[in-house]
Amino acid sequence: MLAMLIRRLIQSIVVMLVVAFIAFSLFQFVGDPINNMVGQEASAQERAELRERLGLNDPIPIQFMRFVGNAAQGNFGISYRMARPVSAVIAERLPATLELAMISAFFALSMGIGLGVYTALKRSGVLSNFIMTVSLIGVSLPTFLIGILLIYIFAVELRWLPSFGRGQVVRISDWWTTGLLTPSGRASLILPAITLGLFQLTLIMRLVRAEMLEVLRTDYIKFARARGLAQRSIHFHHALKNTLLPVITITGLQLGTIIAFAIITETVFQWPGVGLLFINAIRFVDVPMMSAYLVLIALVFVVINLIVDVLYFVVDPRLRATKH
Protein backbone atom coordinates (compact mmCIF):
# COMPACT_ATOMS: atom_id res chain seq x y z
CA MET A 1 0.00 0.00 0.00
CA LEU A 2 2.73 2.45 1.03
CA ALA A 3 4.89 1.46 -1.94
CA MET A 4 1.92 2.03 -4.22
CA LEU A 5 1.29 5.43 -2.70
CA ILE A 6 4.89 6.50 -3.15
CA ARG A 7 4.89 5.25 -6.75
CA ARG A 8 1.69 7.15 -7.48
CA LEU A 9 3.06 10.30 -5.84
CA ILE A 10 6.14 10.21 -8.06
CA GLN A 11 3.95 9.72 -11.11
CA SER A 12 1.84 12.66 -10.00
CA ILE A 13 4.89 14.88 -9.70
CA VAL A 14 5.97 13.94 -13.23
CA VAL A 15 2.52 14.79 -14.53
CA MET A 16 2.57 18.12 -12.73
CA LEU A 17 6.02 18.95 -14.17
CA VAL A 18 4.81 18.22 -17.71
CA VAL A 19 1.75 20.41 -17.23
CA ALA A 20 3.92 23.10 -15.67
CA PHE A 21 6.11 23.02 -18.76
CA ILE A 22 3.08 23.52 -21.01
CA ALA A 23 1.87 26.34 -18.80
CA PHE A 24 5.36 27.84 -18.89
CA SER A 25 5.43 27.53 -22.68
CA LEU A 26 2.39 29.76 -22.86
CA PHE A 27 4.61 32.66 -21.87
CA GLN A 28 6.96 31.86 -24.75
CA PHE A 29 4.40 31.45 -27.47
CA VAL A 30 1.39 33.57 -26.62
CA GLY A 31 2.62 37.04 -27.41
CA ASP A 32 5.56 38.94 -25.94
CA PRO A 33 4.92 39.68 -22.26
CA ILE A 34 6.95 42.89 -22.55
CA ASN A 35 4.48 44.24 -25.08
CA ASN A 36 1.68 43.66 -22.65
CA MET A 37 3.46 45.38 -19.81
CA VAL A 38 4.91 48.53 -21.30
CA GLY A 39 3.12 51.15 -23.32
CA GLN A 40 3.35 51.79 -27.02
CA GLU A 41 5.92 54.57 -26.59
CA ALA A 42 8.52 52.61 -24.62
CA SER A 43 11.90 52.69 -26.31
CA ALA A 44 13.89 49.63 -27.37
CA GLN A 45 16.31 50.45 -24.60
CA GLU A 46 13.59 50.34 -21.94
CA ARG A 47 12.24 47.10 -23.32
CA ALA A 48 15.68 45.46 -23.18
CA GLU A 49 16.16 46.59 -19.59
CA LEU A 50 12.79 45.25 -18.51
CA ARG A 51 13.52 42.01 -20.34
CA GLU A 52 16.81 41.68 -18.46
CA ARG A 53 15.20 42.57 -15.13
CA LEU A 54 12.43 39.95 -15.55
CA GLY A 55 15.03 37.31 -16.39
CA LEU A 56 13.61 36.75 -19.85
CA ASN A 57 17.09 36.62 -21.34
CA ASP A 58 18.14 33.67 -19.22
CA PRO A 59 18.36 30.22 -20.83
CA ILE A 60 14.98 28.46 -21.09
CA PRO A 61 15.76 25.68 -18.54
CA ILE A 62 16.67 28.26 -15.92
CA GLN A 63 13.51 30.22 -16.59
CA PHE A 64 11.50 27.03 -16.32
CA MET A 65 13.10 26.11 -13.01
CA ARG A 66 12.30 29.54 -11.73
CA PHE A 67 8.70 29.15 -12.90
CA VAL A 68 8.35 25.78 -11.19
CA GLY A 69 9.94 27.10 -8.00
CA ASN A 70 7.54 30.03 -7.91
CA ALA A 71 4.53 27.90 -8.82
CA ALA A 72 5.31 25.45 -6.03
CA GLN A 73 5.00 28.37 -3.64
CA GLY A 74 1.74 29.44 -5.24
CA ASN A 75 3.32 32.39 -6.99
CA PHE A 76 2.18 32.71 -10.59
CA GLY A 77 3.10 36.32 -11.08
CA ILE A 78 0.91 39.36 -11.62
CA SER A 79 -2.24 39.25 -13.71
CA TYR A 80 -1.77 41.44 -16.78
CA ARG A 81 -5.39 42.47 -16.71
CA MET A 82 -6.07 43.04 -13.04
CA ALA A 83 -2.58 44.03 -11.95
CA ARG A 84 -2.94 41.87 -8.84
CA PRO A 85 -1.16 38.63 -7.87
CA VAL A 86 -2.76 35.75 -9.80
CA SER A 87 -2.81 33.49 -6.77
CA ALA A 88 -4.77 36.04 -4.74
CA VAL A 89 -7.37 36.43 -7.49
CA ILE A 90 -7.77 32.67 -7.88
CA ALA A 91 -7.98 32.10 -4.13
CA GLU A 92 -10.77 34.64 -4.06
CA ARG A 93 -12.71 32.91 -6.80
CA LEU A 94 -11.97 29.28 -5.97
CA PRO A 95 -14.53 28.80 -3.15
CA ALA A 96 -17.38 29.68 -5.52
CA THR A 97 -16.30 27.04 -8.04
CA LEU A 98 -15.53 24.38 -5.42
CA GLU A 99 -18.87 24.89 -3.70
CA LEU A 100 -20.72 24.63 -6.99
CA ALA A 101 -18.71 21.55 -8.02
CA MET A 102 -19.21 19.76 -4.70
CA ILE A 103 -22.95 20.36 -4.64
CA SER A 104 -23.42 19.25 -8.24
CA ALA A 105 -21.13 16.24 -7.73
CA PHE A 106 -23.18 15.22 -4.70
CA PHE A 107 -26.36 15.70 -6.71
CA ALA A 108 -25.00 13.67 -9.64
CA LEU A 109 -23.62 10.87 -7.46
CA SER A 110 -26.57 10.33 -5.17
CA MET A 111 -29.20 10.60 -7.89
CA GLY A 112 -27.03 8.73 -10.41
CA ILE A 113 -26.38 5.73 -8.17
CA GLY A 114 -29.94 5.68 -6.87
CA LEU A 115 -31.57 5.84 -10.28
CA GLY A 116 -28.99 3.47 -11.78
CA VAL A 117 -29.77 0.82 -9.18
CA TYR A 118 -33.49 1.38 -9.54
CA THR A 119 -33.51 1.06 -13.32
CA ALA A 120 -31.30 -2.05 -13.13
CA LEU A 121 -33.55 -3.81 -10.63
CA LYS A 122 -36.82 -2.81 -12.32
CA ARG A 123 -35.47 -3.44 -15.77
CA SER A 124 -38.73 -3.52 -17.66
CA GLY A 125 -40.79 -1.20 -15.48
CA VAL A 126 -42.65 1.75 -16.96
CA LEU A 127 -40.89 4.23 -14.70
CA SER A 128 -37.49 2.70 -15.56
CA ASN A 129 -38.11 3.07 -19.25
CA PHE A 130 -39.23 6.64 -18.69
CA ILE A 131 -36.08 7.45 -16.69
CA MET A 132 -33.87 5.84 -19.34
CA THR A 133 -35.51 7.87 -22.09
CA VAL A 134 -35.19 11.13 -20.19
CA SER A 135 -31.58 10.32 -19.39
CA LEU A 136 -30.88 10.02 -23.09
CA ILE A 137 -32.01 13.60 -23.47
CA GLY A 138 -29.79 14.56 -20.54
CA VAL A 139 -26.76 13.03 -22.24
CA SER A 140 -27.40 14.57 -25.62
CA LEU A 141 -28.36 18.15 -24.67
CA PRO A 142 -25.40 20.54 -24.48
CA THR A 143 -24.76 22.07 -21.06
CA PHE A 144 -25.37 25.69 -22.06
CA LEU A 145 -28.74 24.79 -23.53
CA ILE A 146 -29.79 23.03 -20.32
CA GLY A 147 -28.69 26.09 -18.35
CA ILE A 148 -30.60 28.48 -20.59
CA LEU A 149 -33.70 26.27 -20.49
CA LEU A 150 -33.58 26.09 -16.70
CA ILE A 151 -33.16 29.85 -16.46
CA TYR A 152 -36.08 30.36 -18.80
CA ILE A 153 -38.39 28.04 -16.87
CA PHE A 154 -37.46 28.62 -13.24
CA ALA A 155 -36.11 32.17 -13.28
CA VAL A 156 -37.97 33.94 -16.08
CA GLU A 157 -41.34 32.20 -16.25
CA LEU A 158 -41.90 30.83 -12.74
CA ARG A 159 -39.64 33.37 -10.96
CA TRP A 160 -38.76 30.79 -8.31
CA LEU A 161 -34.99 31.01 -8.49
CA PRO A 162 -32.42 33.65 -9.37
CA SER A 163 -30.94 33.49 -12.86
CA PHE A 164 -27.39 34.60 -12.17
CA GLY A 165 -24.76 35.25 -9.53
CA ARG A 166 -24.05 33.67 -6.16
CA GLY A 167 -26.60 35.51 -4.07
CA GLN A 168 -25.53 36.73 -0.67
CA VAL A 169 -22.30 35.19 0.57
CA VAL A 170 -20.87 34.93 4.07
CA ARG A 171 -17.16 35.11 4.79
CA ILE A 172 -16.31 32.26 7.15
CA SER A 173 -12.54 32.66 7.09
CA ASP A 174 -9.88 34.72 5.38
CA TRP A 175 -9.93 32.55 2.31
CA TRP A 176 -13.41 31.11 2.14
CA THR A 177 -16.72 32.72 1.33
CA THR A 178 -19.78 30.55 1.28
CA GLY A 179 -23.23 30.91 -0.22
CA LEU A 180 -24.53 27.92 1.70
CA LEU A 181 -25.47 29.88 4.80
CA THR A 182 -27.90 32.37 3.29
CA PRO A 183 -31.27 31.62 1.66
CA SER A 184 -30.39 33.62 -1.45
CA GLY A 185 -27.01 31.87 -1.67
CA ARG A 186 -28.63 28.45 -1.51
CA ALA A 187 -31.31 29.41 -4.02
CA SER A 188 -28.65 30.67 -6.41
CA LEU A 189 -26.80 27.35 -6.21
CA ILE A 190 -29.70 25.17 -7.36
CA LEU A 191 -29.91 25.94 -11.07
CA PRO A 192 -26.16 26.00 -11.81
CA ALA A 193 -25.61 22.84 -9.74
CA ILE A 194 -28.28 20.98 -11.71
CA THR A 195 -26.95 22.30 -15.00
CA LEU A 196 -23.41 21.26 -14.17
CA GLY A 197 -24.38 17.90 -12.69
CA LEU A 198 -27.04 16.71 -15.10
CA PHE A 199 -24.70 15.22 -17.65
CA GLN A 200 -22.65 13.49 -14.94
CA LEU A 201 -25.85 12.23 -13.36
CA THR A 202 -27.02 10.53 -16.52
CA LEU A 203 -23.55 9.17 -17.17
CA ILE A 204 -23.21 7.72 -13.66
CA MET A 205 -26.76 6.38 -13.80
CA ARG A 206 -26.20 4.58 -17.08
CA LEU A 207 -22.86 3.24 -15.85
CA VAL A 208 -24.29 2.00 -12.56
CA ARG A 209 -27.20 0.39 -14.40
CA ALA A 210 -24.97 -1.41 -16.88
CA GLU A 211 -22.55 -2.59 -14.20
CA MET A 212 -25.37 -3.65 -11.91
CA LEU A 213 -27.01 -5.71 -14.65
CA GLU A 214 -23.63 -7.29 -15.33
CA VAL A 215 -23.06 -8.13 -11.66
CA LEU A 216 -26.59 -9.50 -11.22
CA ARG A 217 -25.77 -12.08 -13.89
CA THR A 218 -22.66 -13.36 -12.12
CA ASP A 219 -22.37 -16.76 -10.49
CA TYR A 220 -21.87 -15.38 -7.01
CA ILE A 221 -25.18 -13.53 -7.19
CA LYS A 222 -26.91 -16.70 -8.43
CA PHE A 223 -25.24 -18.59 -5.60
CA ALA A 224 -26.37 -15.94 -3.10
CA ARG A 225 -29.95 -16.39 -4.37
CA ALA A 226 -29.60 -20.17 -4.16
CA ARG A 227 -28.63 -19.77 -0.50
CA GLY A 228 -31.89 -17.96 0.16
CA LEU A 229 -30.32 -14.66 1.23
CA ALA A 230 -32.66 -11.69 1.54
CA GLN A 231 -33.34 -9.81 -1.67
CA ARG A 232 -32.22 -6.53 -0.14
CA SER A 233 -28.90 -7.97 0.99
CA ILE A 234 -28.26 -9.49 -2.43
CA HIS A 235 -28.95 -6.23 -4.21
CA PHE A 236 -27.33 -3.71 -1.92
CA HIS A 237 -24.68 -5.66 -0.07
CA HIS A 238 -23.50 -8.25 -2.58
CA ALA A 239 -24.23 -6.60 -5.93
CA LEU A 240 -23.92 -2.85 -5.37
CA LYS A 241 -20.54 -3.11 -3.69
CA ASN A 242 -19.15 -4.97 -6.69
CA THR A 243 -20.76 -2.43 -8.99
CA LEU A 244 -18.95 0.46 -7.35
CA LEU A 245 -15.43 -0.49 -8.46
CA PRO A 246 -15.69 0.78 -12.05
CA VAL A 247 -18.04 3.52 -10.94
CA ILE A 248 -15.36 4.97 -8.67
CA THR A 249 -12.95 5.35 -11.59
CA ILE A 250 -15.36 7.14 -13.84
CA THR A 251 -16.81 9.22 -11.05
CA GLY A 252 -13.37 10.36 -9.95
CA LEU A 253 -12.53 11.55 -13.44
CA GLN A 254 -15.95 13.13 -13.82
CA LEU A 255 -15.49 15.05 -10.58
CA GLY A 256 -12.34 16.54 -12.07
CA THR A 257 -14.29 17.43 -15.18
CA ILE A 258 -16.97 19.10 -13.12
CA ILE A 259 -14.42 21.42 -11.57
CA ALA A 260 -12.39 21.95 -14.72
CA PHE A 261 -15.23 22.50 -17.14
CA ALA A 262 -17.52 24.47 -14.91
CA ILE A 263 -16.53 27.20 -17.38
CA ILE A 264 -19.68 26.93 -19.48
CA THR A 265 -22.05 26.78 -16.55
CA GLU A 266 -20.28 29.65 -14.84
CA THR A 267 -20.55 31.71 -18.01
CA VAL A 268 -24.25 31.01 -18.46
CA PHE A 269 -25.05 31.83 -14.84
CA GLN A 270 -22.41 34.56 -14.43
CA TRP A 271 -21.10 32.50 -11.51
CA PRO A 272 -18.11 34.32 -10.00
CA GLY A 273 -15.80 31.28 -10.00
CA VAL A 274 -12.47 30.39 -11.58
CA GLY A 275 -14.10 29.18 -14.82
CA LEU A 276 -15.49 32.60 -15.55
CA LEU A 277 -12.12 34.04 -14.55
CA PHE A 278 -10.41 31.77 -17.07
CA ILE A 279 -12.75 32.71 -19.91
CA ASN A 280 -12.05 36.36 -19.27
CA ALA A 281 -8.32 35.62 -19.03
CA ILE A 282 -8.41 34.09 -22.49
CA ARG A 283 -10.33 37.01 -23.88
CA PHE A 284 -7.66 39.43 -22.66
CA VAL A 285 -4.66 37.13 -23.26
CA ASP A 286 -3.89 37.22 -19.55
CA VAL A 287 -1.09 34.65 -19.77
CA PRO A 288 -0.15 34.34 -16.06
CA MET A 289 -3.79 33.73 -15.25
CA MET A 290 -4.16 31.10 -17.98
CA SER A 291 -1.05 29.21 -16.95
CA ALA A 292 -2.04 29.29 -13.30
CA TYR A 293 -5.48 27.91 -14.17
CA LEU A 294 -3.90 25.15 -16.23
CA VAL A 295 -1.64 24.10 -13.34
CA LEU A 296 -4.53 24.30 -10.88
CA ILE A 297 -6.79 22.03 -12.93
CA ALA A 298 -3.97 19.54 -13.44
CA LEU A 299 -3.48 19.52 -9.68
CA VAL A 300 -7.19 18.84 -9.16
CA PHE A 301 -7.09 15.85 -11.53
CA VAL A 302 -3.91 14.47 -9.99
CA VAL A 303 -5.27 14.74 -6.45
CA ILE A 304 -8.59 13.12 -7.42
CA ASN A 305 -6.78 10.27 -9.14
CA LEU A 306 -4.73 9.70 -6.01
CA ILE A 307 -7.91 9.56 -3.95
CA VAL A 308 -9.46 7.13 -6.43
CA ASP A 309 -6.44 4.85 -6.18
CA VAL A 310 -6.68 4.83 -2.41
CA LEU A 311 -10.43 4.15 -2.60
CA TYR A 312 -9.74 1.08 -4.73
CA PHE A 313 -7.76 -0.36 -1.89
CA VAL A 314 -10.57 0.29 0.52
CA VAL A 315 -13.23 -1.32 -1.68
CA ASP A 316 -11.37 -4.16 -3.39
CA PRO A 317 -9.61 -6.61 -1.08
CA ARG A 318 -7.90 -8.26 -4.03
CA LEU A 319 -5.60 -5.26 -4.38
CA ARG A 320 -4.45 -5.31 -0.79
CA ALA A 321 -1.26 -7.14 0.02
CA THR A 322 -1.95 -10.80 0.74
CA LYS A 323 -1.69 -11.91 4.31
CA HIS A 324 0.04 -15.14 3.52
Binding site: D219, F223, A226, K241
Partner: peptide, 16 residues
Protein backbone atom coordinates in the same frame (compact mmCIF):
# COMPACT_ATOMS: atom_id res chain seq x y z
CA UNK B 1 -28.63 -26.26 -1.07
CA UNK B 2 -26.87 -25.71 -4.34
CA UNK B 3 -23.26 -26.07 -5.45
CA UNK B 4 -22.26 -24.46 -8.72
CA UNK B 5 -19.74 -25.51 -11.30
CA UNK B 6 -17.05 -22.87 -11.07
CA UNK B 7 -15.69 -22.21 -7.57
CA UNK B 8 -13.67 -19.28 -8.92
CA UNK B 9 -16.81 -17.30 -9.71
CA UNK B 10 -19.26 -18.68 -7.13
CA UNK B 11 -17.90 -16.64 -4.24
CA UNK B 12 -18.35 -12.90 -3.87
CA UNK B 13 -14.79 -11.57 -4.39
CA UNK B 14 -15.09 -8.59 -2.06
CA UNK B 15 -16.58 -10.25 1.00
CA UNK B 16 -14.62 -12.46 3.38
Amino acid sequence: GMVFQDPLTSLNPILT
